[in-house]
């Protein structure tokens, strides 16, 4: 659907541990039409600072209540302003935007690999997968246990979740991709990989997928100016069988979800 630009009312705000917060906002079209992996461009109020809206994956939707939720990590001025909104406050919001995840073929288990706030699109994706009779398993990595804030919803859906932390404070002590490798080493059935998180993690998942000949989709999070393909700030260098000449594609309109094989990663052959 065409994205709708309007003021979204903040319905509720739920602080989680540390810098993390859940925001519930009213925007009927986003609530009705969003698919997992899509995002909104949103900014608190109408103040001049910071100038730009920010892109956020849609965590969940409630079409009946005409609301959706965002999971934020407050990092800079934009996220701080959003996290400081009070119920009744307005946020300028355009959405839903971007291409969603594509579900795996029937019978293939979806392995969802999240790094930090990259967990955000996987809540909705698990709902979609389960509704369609599919299976999912979440690998959720962070620096420390406090970075793994969104775990209960997956347990409630009956989706297995494998936590990993760099400091060993929760789950596997090490990188999230190591836990994925361990699972794959022990498993025989077909899987498809989905990843959202820091670029280095996405690149590691892409390499892992290539090495094991597994399909993989990655959700990228570059700096984004407009969300609709006009500023050309968020472009990703890509190459595909259909278009063998490397070229830029907008993460906002042609992503943020890309086939991992089509992304020309920094440091690889053909990178710019």
């Amino acid at each position: 659907m065409t994205p709708i630009n309007k003021d979204a009312v903040l319905v509720s705000r739920q602080p989680l541990g540390g810098p993390y917060v859940l925001l519930t906002l009213r925007h009927a079209e986003v609530a009705r039409a969003s698919r997992a992996g899509q995002f909104v461009m949103i900014k608190a109020g109408t103040s001049a600072e910071p100038p730009l809206r920010r892109p956020f994956s849609i965590l969940t939707v409630d079409p009946a209540a005409e609301t959706f939720r965002l999971f934020l990590k407050t990092i800079g001025a934009g996220t701080r302003a959003l996290a400081a909104l009070a119920p009744g406050d307005l946020a300028q919001c355009l959405g839903p935007l971007g291409k969603p995840f594509t579900a795996p073929p029937p019978g293939r288990e979806a392995l969802l690999v999240a790094g930090g706030y990259g967990i955000a699109p996987f809540h909705l994706f698990c709902e979609e997968l389960l509704r369609a009779g599919g299976r999912a398993r979440v690998f959720y990595g962070g620096r420390t246990a406090a970075d793994l804030q969104v775990r209960e919803p997956f347990a409630a859906m009956g989706v297995p979740l494998v936590p990993t932390t760099d400091d060993g404070s929760l789950g596997h002590h090490g990188r999230v991709t190591e836990a994925v490798e361990q699972y794959l080493d022990a498993k025989t059935g077909p899987v498809a990989l989905y990843a959202c998180g820091p670029d280095a993690m996405l690149h590691a998942v892409a390499r892992l997928a290539a090495r094991r000949s597994l399909p993989a989709q990655v959700s990228l999070d570059p700096w984004m100016g407009c969300g609709v393909g006009t500023c050309l700030g968020c472009v990703v260098w890509t190459q595909s069988a259909a278009e063998p000449r490397a070229h830029y594609r907008c993460a906002c309109t042609e992503g943020p979800v890309f086939d991992a094989r089509e992304v020309v990663w920094p440091g690889e052959d053909g990178a710019r």
């Binding site: 700096w223 500023c231 700030g233 260098w237 830029y248």
Partner: peptide, 8 residues
């Protein structure tokens, strides 16, 4: 193609 990234 334009410039390399980051662009903004």
């Amino acid at each position: 193609d334009g410039c390399a990234t980051p662009r903004i």
